[in-house]
């Protein structure tokens, strides 16, 4: 993977909060309620597969995706969603618009999150390759409330780095709302960062505010929790594409150590 770009160097930071960004999001909110086909929402659409990884069960993979998905599909139907152990692979598509710094173009990202339940992974050999073969990005999840899930990261990273050297890799610490009860202190995170030079994000995938009907999730309220993940993912993917296309020089430090 190329050296990660500095945050905000590829995409206009906080563009989703600008009037223009909101207009795009509104369009997604409207459209994704009705449409699954006809996904070309913008002249430039970047399509990616993101494989979710997490050694331990219950690190929050399902909740993260559900949060991102619900955010953009705020129908009452989804209010009944509860995290549950998954019995196989499930994929979820999330659209996210972002504006490029260099050209001021708006790009519509189509993230396809692939999530596989752990018991299925251990029971069925075909699951893991299926989840990884097409992946352009790997999101490694650990939970702030589960030390073992953090300590498993190096093993997981090593396994995937061999398989997919060109893919984007990001580490996501979930259950950040439980930070008071964390098993993963800040200094450990710092050490991990230095060793791996990977983007590291913190999320809380708890349900956002509800609308007046008491059921529908307020899409906008959830944005603040999720936007930084989607923006960061978009930024790294775009950067990686540019490097892969030879449009950006890949600096020497990038060779895996």
């Amino acid at each position: 993977m190329a050296k990660p770009p500095a945050p905000g160097s590829v995409l206009v930071p906080d563009w989703h909060e600008s009037a223009e960004g909101k207009e795009y999001l509104r369009c997604i909110l409207r459209k994704s309620r009705r449409r699954v086909f006809g996904e070309c929402l913008s002249p430039v659409t970047s399509v990616t597969c993101c494989s979710l990884q997490g050694a331990e069960e219950s690190v929050g993979k399902g909740s993260l995706v559900a949060k991102a998905h619900k955010l953009l599909l705020p129908s009452p139907h989804h209010a009944k969603w509860l995290p549950r152990p998954s019995t196989g692979i499930q994929t979820t598509v999330v659209f996210w618009p972002a504006k490029l710094q260099a050209s001021s173009r708006v790009v519509m990202f189509r993230f396809e999150f692939w999530d596989c339940g752990e018991s299925a992974l251990t029971k069925f050999d075909h699951m893991l390759p299926a989840c990884q073969e097409k992946a352009d990005a790997f999101l490694f999840l650990f939970s702030f409330t589960d030390r073992a899930s953090f300590e498993d990261l190096p093993g997981q990273l090593a396994r995937v780095t061999g398989e997919a050297p060109g893919a984007v890799k990001m580490v996501i610490g979930s259950k950040f709302d439980q930070y008071m009860h964390t098993d993963v202190p800040e200094q450990d995170l710092r050490a991990f960062r230095q060793a791996w030079e990977l983007p590291l994000l913190r999320v809380k995938s708890v349900p956002g505010r509800r609308l007046a009907d008491g059921r529908t999730l307020d899409g906008w309220a959830g944005l603040a929790d999720m936007a930084h993940v989607l923006n960061s993912l978009a930024e790294h993917l775009w950067h990686q594409d540019q490097v892969a296309a030879g449009l950006l020089a890949s600096s020497p430090e990038n060779t895996p150590d």
């Binding site: 699954v36 559900a66 998905h69 599909l73 139907h77 989804h78 009944k80 969603w81 509860l82 019995t87 196989g88 692979i89 499930q90 994929t91 979820t92 598509v93 396809e112 299925a120 029971k123 069925f124 699951m127 299926a130």
Partner: peptide, 21 residues
Amino acid sequence: LPPQTARDYPVYLPHGSPTVP
């Protein structure tokens, strides 16, 4: 199930194939 774009679930058919998924 909650809505999902796609799924790939192993299932055993209780009548037709209860031991081979």
